[in-house]
Design a protein around this nucleic acid. Structure first.
Lengths: 174, 174
DNA sequence: GTAAATGTAAAACGATCACTTTACATGTAG
DNA sequence: CTACATGTAAAGTGATCGTTTTACATTTAC
């Protein structure tokens, strides 16, 4: 549906820019250019709308990080922040704003983070030719850290993360 | 003032647990056991209250990370999450919830992150005997990443970060 | 031709928001 | 004795919250 896509696209921008709780439904209806009746017919509730937004974002993230090396992963992160800005992980922010008390949101965050961790594990395995749980955890930490440190440190944080990741990968390969 | 401390302590817990925007003033007055009149006399506004909370938290953070080595830094992080839980950086969460549009909060976050980066720089310098901007940036990223990945990966994220940090420090020392 | 589906605009819902005010109690300093 | 500072409880401020409803227009399908 074109309407649903228009809604989730507008909602993602507003939630990301102003926060989930601080974004009111009237602002959402205006941005998506639809009546509140239609919004509720398509989304059900504000929490479900956020869950839809997170699900779309998860898909987009997995597309953008469909890469074969750890270095390419951090290039992808740099692309992301360049095109969409660096405001931290929208999933963790939504979880924090709702205290984990909103089931739809909590479920969407858990699904994304599981997929994210699996994706990193795959990239690490492709890069060094075998599974490596510790290196995977370290790359997860470096990626998450770069995404959040970039908020106040800028691109330098992503660069530092990539260099660190490359050193760890090199050490793991030998 | 004992009252002010009682207020900021209660507010920090509520903001951390439920989020800044989702925490109402009546919940705050009840938790601090004071009238709203007294709350406003001491805090001025909700945004100023959050700024006070962040300022207190900044002090506590700097006390807890008054260490001399990078390894001790990650031990301190593990202590922190063990005693206070892992819900991500309250400063970045407050910034995200307000979209950077609340001056008192934005200022408190910037002050803390500047102090944090300086602290990491000091620890790195003490550990390897000289300044190292790249290593400092990498430790910032690892610390920030461990704090956020710990939300969904648990203590393993902090352990992985410490091991990675130790390897980077060792490489920088030789 | 008519009924269902899908949309709009706009009013109304009760609840809650951050914040202020009124009215009153208490201790304390000049 | 008085005056002020500091606190409480509770009602009231207008605005905004997420959500539902009413009333009506348009398109699609049998």
């Amino acid at each position: 549906m074109e309407l649903t896509r228009r809604l989730t696209d507008a909602a993602e921008k507003l939630f990301d820019r102003y926060g989930y709780t601080a974004t009111g439904m009237d602002r959402l209806t205006k941005a998506a250019d639809m009546s509140s009746r239609t919004l509720y017919k398509h989304a059900g509730s504000k929490a479900q709308l956020m869950a839809m937004v997170l699900s779309e974002r998860d898909k987009r993230f997995l597309c953008r990080t469909d890469v074969k090396s750890v270095e390419a992963l951090f290039d992808a992160l740099k692309d992301w922040t360049a095109t969409e800005g660096a405001r931290g992980c929208l999933f963790l922010r939504a979880l924090g704003e709702t205290g984990g008390d909103t089931p739809e949101i909590t479920a969407a965050v858990e699904a994304h983070k599981a997929a994210f961790a699996a994706r990193i594990g795959d990239i690490v395995a492709m890069d060094i030719g075998r599974d490596d749980p510790l290196l995977t955890e370290q790359i997860i930490v470096l990626f998450e850290g770069a995404a959040h440190a970039a908020i106040y440190r800028g691109n330098g944080a992503v660069d530092a993360a990539r260099v660190a990741a490359a050193a760890l990968v090199k050490a793991a390969r030998t």
